[in-house]
Design a protein around this nucleic acid. Structure first.
Lengths: 224, 224
DNA sequence: AATAAATTACTGACTGGTCAGTCATAATAC
DNA sequence: GTATTATGACTGACCAGTCAGTAATTTATT
């Protein structure tokens, strides 16, 4: 949850506590438990009682911190994802190698910091529930997807400016390039969770990067 | 629970009509209506009454043809997707051009025959509900995903054998290559359905194919 | 051809279980 | 002792699934 939250579209902060002291510890435990259950069962199939039990409190306690199931869901999405983004920007800023390596590092880092953690369930959850929670989807698009795309755009533009990458439609390329990474993640949290064959993430990402970096590579004119 | 369950993976055929005449017309209308509503609202949020109303019958009638909501869901998945696959095989068999064109044609044809039709909602629906219906997911994997991957494998192997494509891990490449197409589809049926910016499918697919075919292309040795 | 009987197709009010959300009460802190 | 924090039994809405009954259609009878 960004601290200086100036007029966000989705704003169901805990709020329940009327004034004075607020214990920040409890809500975090609750959203953690909620995230886990939402991800494994889906939103509709997750009972609030189970979330409460999972966090070691009673159902009533949930309502001290969240107005409703929907508010809890929003909080899960909000707290779950936003913090990660800043790190990506730093990675790009402090990178001096070639753009191909930068792209590789960025994607592998994202996989390590999101894909392999509990947060990895959020994108699939969001996809599944976007239709039922359009405002949350809009918030997610603004707070997660847009900044994420910005990072990738910087890398692609960097590569093109430096003559390492071919010129192609950047806005489209961003999503084409990230799609396999997202699919890998979504797959693991849907079909993968029920016995279906799953790819080794490292091998999958390696093949993807191999293919993409070859596809992006500018013709090496110097070779003549 | 199926009556004479001769060990099919998923087998909840209409079956309700005990013997003699069976009207095949009605079930098709029902699954069509169900598909539409499941896709827009999700499984849990779709009321059987709405499906019935949408098909112009009463709720009771639904139960003449389907044992339960779950059986209806299975039927929707089953009838919805399977028929398409055979056409792909024909396309490959009767193709004489280069493998790059074949891949392009296959993907564009799939988009046209699935992506742009109501069937396009099935993959996202399946992803969302796989966790809650593992048997359906297993059936889907066997009846849709495996045959689909077989098609792509044939194209890739063809290209490699003929020296048009670089050699790389085929099993992984299959999924890497199809992932952006799937994501395009999933996106349109989730975030895209609630006001978020969406790609022009043709442009997206063109960029994807451009990138992939360049990435796949064997170094043209003849150029020296 | 008209009528009755039998079969099939459909209906929608009803039931039983589930679960989000409430609130009177209890435990704990201060 | 009183203010804060937590509880879990309770309520009311919701909806999958049922079933006694009605309508339509087919078959049999005269």
């Amino acid at each position: 949850m960004p601290a200086a939250d100036v007029s966000l579209p989705v704003s169901d902060q805990p709020a329940a506590l009327p004034r004075q002291r607020r214990k920040e510890a409890r809500p975090a435990e609750l959203t953690t438990a909620a995230l886990e259950l939402f991800i494994t069962n889906g939103y509709a199939a997750t009972r609030l009682e189970d979330i409460a039990a999972h966090a070691g409190v009673s159902k009533g306690t949930l309502y001290l911190y969240f107005e409703s199931k929907e508010a809890l869901f929003k909080a899960v999405i909000r707290e779950g994802i936003v913090p990660v983004m800043a790190q990506g920007a730093e990675l790009i800023d402090g990178f001096s190698g070639c753009s191909a390596d930068l792209l590789r590092h960025l994607i592998l880092a994202w996989w390590q910091r999101v894909g392999e953690t509990p947060l990895g369930g959020v994108p699939k959850l969001m996809m599944s529930e976007a239709g039922n929670f359009p405002e949350v989807a809009a918030y997610y698009a603004e707070a997660v997807i847009t900044p994420g795309r910005d990072l990738l755009r910087r890398v692609l533009v960097r590569g093109m400016v430096q003559g390492e990458f071919r010129a192609l439609d950047v806005e489209t390329a961003i999503d084409v390039i990230f799609a396999p990474v997202l699919m890998l993640l979504i797959w693991r949290h849907s079909m993968g969770a029920c016995g279906c064959r799953t790819h080794e993430p490292q091998a999958f990402l390696a093949t993807h990067l191999d293919l993409v970096l070859n596809g992006l590579a500018a013709d090496i004119v110097a070779a003549a």
